[in-house]
Design a protein around this nucleic acid. Structure first.
Length: 136
DNA sequence: ATTCTCACA
DNA sequence: TGTGAGGA
């Protein structure tokens, strides 16, 4: 009844997320995932897989591995500890503000990039025009 | 064939 | 994080 115990090998996860097994072991050393062990070999659960997914996503938005780990710890603690929920909420609020700021910054740079592209296109048009009708 | 630990021209 | 060594 509980086919909820799917597991993965380190190479399966490495392939799925396009990272090396070294990277996954590194995240474990940093305390981001704690796969079960069968002797020396690591057995990754669905939860471990999600944590890897979240870790990689966090990295993409500029979080350090330490920050990702802190979020995991806070989440785990807040899950069942009421007082921790308040602290967790505060952290999330700060994170939210930072993300909003990142979105703003990205939009600013995006417009600059688009503006430069437009300028380049105009220059290219002028060049081809000059080529058609050289020195006046 | 895979994974593991350890170490670093 | 990468990579190679030497085992299991």
């Amino acid at each position: 009844m509980s086919g909820n115990d799917k597991t993965y090998t380190i190479s399966e996860l490495a392939r799925e997320f396009d990272v090396t097994t070294r990277t996954i072991r590194h995240y474990e050393e940093q305390g981001l995932i704690a796969p079960e062990r069968r002797g020396q070999h690591r057995i990754y659960s669905r939860r471990d897989r999600i944590r890897l997914l979240l870790t990689l996503r966090g990295k993409r938005i500029g979080l350090t591995l330490n920050e990702v780990r802190e979020l995991f710890e806070l989440y785990d603690a807040a899950r069942d500890d009421a007082p921790q929920l308040l602290e967790f909420m505060r952290i999330l609020d700060l994170r939210e503000q930072r993300l909003m700021q990142q979105i703003e910054d990205i939009n600013v740079v995006m417009r600059e990039v688009q503006g430069l592209k437009a300028q380049c296109e105009r220059l290219l048009e002028k060049k081809s025009a000059d080529a058609d009708s050289p020195q006046p």
